[in-house]
Every structure is written in C-alpha cells, then in structure tokens.
C-alpha cells in the first residue's frame, strides 16, 4: 500500500488539476455486479425479518387477544379504527415534535462535540467517555435515576434552588407541559454519543489538505466548520436523519419507563402505544395494525429524507 495511488488527488479538493470527477467517470469503466456482495446481508435480514413483517401484516387483519384459538377476521377494520383513534393522532403529533427537537439537538451537539474533540482540547479522552457512556446504559436502568432527578424533591430542583433559580423548580414529570421536554432531554442525552461517534469517524475522512488550504487562505475556524466540515459529513447527517425518523416513530423505552406515556397521554408515542395495546391490553390485531402503520410512516419519512438529500446532491454536483 505504498506507492500505487494517492487519494489526496481525490474528489474533495476544489481543484481543476484533479482527475475527472467521479460523477462523470461512472459511465466509462464498466463495473462488476454487486449482487453477490449484498446477497448475504440481504438474505439474513429479509429471510429472518420478513416473516415477522408478513405475520404482523396478517395479524393486523384480525381481532385477536393473542391466545384465543378462534381469532375473528376484521379485514381492514383495524386500520379504519386507527384513523379515528385520537390517541394515535396524538402520538403522531408527539412524534413529529419529538423528531424535530431531538434530531436537531442530537445532530448539533454530536457535530460540535466531534469537532471540539478533534481539536486539541485537553482531557478529550475524559469528555469522549462522558458523551459516549449514556449510549451504553440501558434506559431501564436509568429510568428511576431520571425520575429521581426530575422529581419535585429531586436533584435538579435542589440545584436550581441553590443557584438562586428556585422559581424555576417544579415537579417536572408530573405536569403534561414539562414531561415531554424531559423525555426529549433524556433521549438527547442518550443518543448524542451515537451521533458523536459517527461524526467523529466521518470527520476523519475529510481531506486534511483541503482544511490546510482553507486555513492558509485565512478562513476562520467557524468558516471552515460551516463551509468544509459540515458539507464533508453530509452523508452521515442524511443517514442520521433517516435513522432518527425511524427511531422517533419507534420511541418506546424512555417514555414507557420514565413516564409510562403519561401524565394523561402527554408522552404517548406510537411505540409506547403499540406496546400498551399489544401486550398489557392484548389487542394483538390492533397492535399489529399500528405496527404496520409505523412501518409505512417510517419508510415514507426515511425515503423523503433520502430523496431530498439526493436532489440536493445533484443540485450542488457533489
């Protein structure tokens, strides 16, 4: 791996001396088929999980408690019922707000942390561990910790009181108005480590010479971040956006364990609703129909992001 090619002459540098840009070279060299390469993963995923999707699709046409030997077929009845179900719409509305807030916060924080820790900040190993650790701790373990922290007599109110901000202290999880922001905070706390790790990896891919060139041209740090680093990690941002849509729709652990979807459905999500309906209430058919709705919404959301990203790619010619 010593002398063959140099990636430094690659595509990222805005220079006219570089070889033909990859976009145009695509047509010239015939590429080998990639099918055998994707097949093992495809078979494992599709083979193992599509049975589950099929089964769920079938169950969604039933009125069934999960054990009775005689389920009743209701056709698309469950879906009709979903469209008129106020809790479903409430859950969707929560999901939309939740996605916008948590995705923005996670992305911004993960990006800034990755940038900061790529620079020569002292004790960066310690910071990395602190940002990363929440990712590895199961929400089930942290739920009581957070309930304690945000309780009326919890550590957060205690801290506020001692900072002279006592007027801000309140029973955070007991009020519909503050329970959702707390759930969002916990989620961001939980997942920033993930976005951080991925951005950190992606920043390693940015051509150092481009950065150096920008600096030589006198570009400021902020300028470099905005005009070189941020576009450079766009692939990661798009992937994270798609994952966040799916993740937001599936949100379950945190609201279920911290607030049980309450108070009064203020933190009900599609994921918690599906769980409540399918397991404790044993409306397996209705739960399956909700799951299929989730699948459709998640795919539509993720595809929308991917399409938008592609359009932008072709506009800017990246």
């Amino acid at each position: 791996m010593t002398s063959t090619t140099s990636p430094k002459t690659g595509a990222r540098r805005p220079s006219s001396t570089a070889p033909p840009s990859p976009g145009r070279s695509r047509g010239r060299v015939a590429r080998p088929s990639g099918l055998p390469w994707i097949l093992p993963a495809f078979i494992l995923v599709v083979g193992l999980l599509y049975f589950c999707i099929g089964e769920t699709g079938y169950l969604s046409t039933l009125d069934w408690d999960g054990t009775s030997p005689t389920p009743t077929s209701v056709g698309l009845g469950n879906y009709e019922q979903i469209l008129q179900d106020p809790i479903f719409w409430q859950a969707i509305w929560h999901t939309v707000i939740f996605f916008i807030v948590t995705f923005t916060a996670q992305t911004a924080l993960g990006f800034v942390f990755a940038a900061l820790l790529h620079s020569k900040v002292k004790l960066s190993a310690v910071y990395k561990v602190i940002v990363f650790t929440p990712v590895v701790i199961a929400p089930a373990t942290m739920a009581p910790v957070f309930r304690q922290m945000f309780a009326a007599d919890g550590q957060l109110n205690w801290t506020l009181d001692h900072l002279g901000l006592g007027f801000l202290s309140q029973p955070w999880l007991a009020q519909s108005s503050t329970a959702m922001p707390v759930i969002m905070f916990i989620t961001v706390w939980n997942f920033t480590g993930l976005t951080f790790v991925l951005y950190y990896a992606a920043m390693g891919q940015i051509d150092p010479e481009t950065l150096e060139a920008a600096r030589t041209d006198g570009a400021s740090n902020i300028r470099t971040l905005v005009s070189i680093v941020w576009p450079g990690v766009r692939g990661t941002t798009v992937a994270l956006g798609m994952l966040s849509v799916i993740g937001a729709l599936k949100t379950f652990d945190v609201p279920y364990l911290v607030t049980i979807g309450g108070p009064n459905y203020a933190t009900e999500f599609l994921g918690t609703y599906i769980y409540r309906i399918s397991i404790p209430s044993a409306h397996v058919g209705y739960g399956a129909a909700l799951s299929i709705m989730l699948l459709i919404l998640a795919l539509v959301g993720a595809i929308a992001i991917a399409v938008r990203a592609n359009r932008k790619d072709s506009e800017t010619g990246v």
Partner: peptide, 22 residues
C-alpha cells in the same frame, strides 16, 4: 398527597420514599 405525585411510580419511587423515612 406529596408534590409531584403524578410523576412518581409506586415502585420504586414511593416505596423507596417510605423505606428511607422521607
């Protein structure tokens, strides 16, 4: 009823509150 009751769970929150003498 204690303040913030609607944000607490019987287990472990209320149970621990009683057991710890709070």
């Amino acid at each position: 009823m204690q303040e913030g009751a609607l944000g607490m769970q019987q287990y472990p929150d209320a149970n621990n509150g009683f057991m710890s003498g709070k």
